[in-house]
Every structure is written in C-alpha cells, then in structure tokens.
C-alpha cells in the first residue's frame, strides 16, 4: 500500500478503503477517512451500515423523478396532489422520500422554474440521486440567481422573453423538483414512454423536455 499519506505516528495502520482512488490524499479525503474510521472504531456505525447507506443513495437516480413527472402528465388529479403535497404524492408511487420536505414546481408557458442552492448543494437526492458537478460549482450557484436567462441559454434552453422565471434558492429545509412541460405530440405515448423522455436537468429546470 502507498505510504505517501502517512505523515503521523500512531498504533494502527490506515487502510486504503476499496472505494479510494489511487494517488495522494486531499485534505478533505484525510478528514473523511479519519471520521469514517473513528465512527466505526467507536461503534457509532458499522462498516456494513456505511456501505449500505452509500449503496442506497447511489441507487437513487433521476428515473424516480421521471416516474413522478410522467404520472403527473397523464393524471391531472395526481398532478394536483403533487403540487399540493409533493411528499404524499411521491409516497403514492412507492418512492421513499422521507425525511426530505419536497416542493414540486410546475412549468407553464408563462412561468419557468429553476432550482439552485447558492449556499452549498442542497438537492432532492432521494428523488433524483446525486447532484451533477455543475450544480455544486460556484459559477452555477452565483450566476443562476443573477442572470438566469443567460445561464439557461448556455444550457441550450431559450425561453421567450414573455416567460417569467422563478429561481428557487434551496437555502434551508425544503427541496425542489421541477415539473417540466409535457412536449407536444406525445398524446399517444404511455406513461413509461413519457418517463423515458424526462431527464435530470429538466427536473432541475435548466432544460426542457423534448420528444426526441
């Protein structure tokens, strides 16, 4: 094993955990490694519990959110429930959402919603999985509140000037998912086919859903 991160003396050896990349450790990697080992050594959590939680979170993906969107597109009553109480509506589909407090935001021709966390990287992970790197980048976080039309354009999303934009800064306890507009000419498509059209970025609000 490499020894380039062993600058200190103590009575046990660090191991390179199997999920550790090769190469020198960053400062944050040291902190994470130390915290992980202490939590396990002190019996706060077991290695198995930690592995299972990582597996559970990495098993979340935008396909869950896409199911919610497709149901809302095909069932007006469901859409109404989703906009009224998103947690309950997501629960209905058997998607475990607790302890997230979710708010769903409907895009219309008049109004487009886009989500950011300017303070850190708050994101509806239970519904969409891990956030993309750009969502955590300072450029996105600082610019989308200030010049959302320009940022959307850089993502390839051109909105008419007449469409109002609501930027949602998830600064505290709520998490947000955008209900995109259903594309034209999809009346004959099944719920499953519709769900396949719905990508992660449309549910953050930086893109729109298209049929192709």
């Amino acid at each position: 094993m490499s020894t380039d991160h062993h600058h200190h003396d103590h009575d046990h050896e660090h191991i390179d955990h199997p999920d550790t990349d090769a190469g020198p450790w960053s400062e944050h990697r040291y902190i994470e490694g130390a915290l992980r080992e202490l939590l396990i050594e002190k019996g706060v959590v077991t290695a198995e519990e930690m592995r299972a939680q990582v597996e559970r979170m990495e098993g979340r993906n935008p396909g869950l959110g896409a199911r919610v969107v497709a149901r809302a597109w095909t069932d007006p009553d469901y859409k109404a429930r989703l906009l009224e109480d998103a947690n309950a509506a997501v629960d209905e589909l058997g998607i475990e959402i607790q302890p997230t407090h979710l708010i769903a935001l409907e895009n219309t021709p008049e109004e487009h919603n886009v989500v950011v966390c300017t303070l850190c990287s708050c994101y509806p992970r239970n519904l969409l999985g891990l956030p993309p790197d750009w969502y955590k980048a300072r450029a996105y976080r600082s610019r989308v509140v200030r010049e959302p039309r320009a940022v959307l354009r850089e993502f390839g999303t051109e909105l008419p000037d007449s469409t109002r934009i609501r930027v949602h800064d998830s600064t505290a306890d709520m998490r947000y998912v955008v209900l995109p507009r259903r594309p034209e000419d999809t009346e004959g498509m099944s719920e499953e086919e519709l769900a396949a059209l719905v990508g992660r970025d449309a549910m953050i609000g930086v893109s729109v859903v298209t049929k192709d």
């Binding site: 509140v145 200030r146 039309r149 000037d161 934009i165 609501r166 930027v167 800064d169």
Partner: peptide, 21 residues
C-alpha cells in the same frame, strides 16, 4: 419571493428569486 430588480440594480425583468428564511 423577491423581484430580481429589488435584489440587484441590474436585476432582470420578469425574474423572481425565492428564498427560504
């Protein structure tokens, strides 16, 4: 809900920013 031009002198028209406080 804040109107963008109440947050910044050069705030874009038709833009609102909503923040949890």
């Amino acid at each position: 809900r804040f109107a963008a031009n109440d947050l910044w002198a050069d705030g874009e028209p038709g833009v609102a920013v909503e923040i949890e406080l």
